[in-house]
Design a protein around this nucleic acid. Structure first.
Lengths: 142, 142
DNA sequence: CTTTAATCAGACAAATAAATCTGATTATAG
DNA sequence: CTATAATCAGATTTATTTGTCTGATTAAAG
């Protein structure tokens, strides 16, 4: 299996995008899970971990749930990826060779370097408020 | 953890590149493993599976081992990836949304689509004979 | 005050990936 | 012919990822 993000990270990205798109403030893990059609307990755990990272906040007790900790104009996808999967993929060799660097490059070093940077930029250049419309439309289609 | 290829695929790519670079014909799993500094039994299994895919051939018995099944001018990295990890990453949504397609796109659909195609091209545009020099230098540095 | 509905912490379980082991078979070389 | 060195098939183990469960705590609402 080839993968870009772990399931944990995919669900985390989806959940945060959903919170940003919804603008309803607090939303329970149960509602989020239902709307995204992903496992409730799992997304709950992921959001809990994102409270530690300062990306979301949680409110306990009845009518509790999760909300963004910051203005969606200040959160980028790369923040969520960094918090969940980390940024190792932007440092490691695509082919798994040890010590892959400009002086000891693997055969794909240069080409992948360019694409990897563009991938990083894709996650870093926009804040999540940019994605509201698209997220709403996508979630509606699930 | 974020990843592009599975360990299995990384090792498979390394091993095939090594066979192409070495030009010694048959090479034992043991030698390959030592030169690449990866687990022998594991790379042996991977190469066995690549014989089924028609990418390498094996020779049993003393002085046996593995060799390319075809001219390195005919093998591309994408062939190895397809045989080991499959090509699902080139079809699935980066964010893990179901049914991500042009009519129901996720927020990253277009941007990632471009990068994904470029990644595919990177693996598809050159044959592995192109990588001989670079592979030899890289392996020497391990 | 009690019921209800939520997070939280941490254990637990299942599935997948990574790695190892064992014994059989095969073929070369002495 | 025998010893040796390799692949092969398949079971087994270990590690990691994914997902679930349980009980405690918290807070709102009647």
């Amino acid at each position: 299996m080839t993968v870009i993000f772990s399931k944990k990270c995919e669900y985390g990205l989806q959940a945060v995008l959903y919170l940003a798109a919804n603008e309803r403030g607090i939303e329970s893990a149960d509602d989020i899970a239902k709307n995204l059609n992903i496992p409730k307990e799992f997304v709950s755990k992921i959001l809990q971990s994102l409270t530690v990272s300062g990306i979301v906040i949680s409110k306990k007790g009845k009518a509790g749930g999760f909300a963004l900790a910051q203005d969606p104009k200040k959160i980028k996808l790369i923040d969520i990826v960094a918090a969940i999967d980390g940024l190792t993929m932007f440092n490691n060799c695509v082919l798994g060779f040890p010590n892959c660097n400009p002086t000891k490059p693997c055969p794909l070093h240069d080409k992948w370097g360019v694409l990897r940077t563009q991938t990083y930029n894709m996650l870093n250049e926009d804040t999540i408020d940019t994605f509201k419309e698209k997220t709403l439309r996508k979630v509606a289609a699930i």
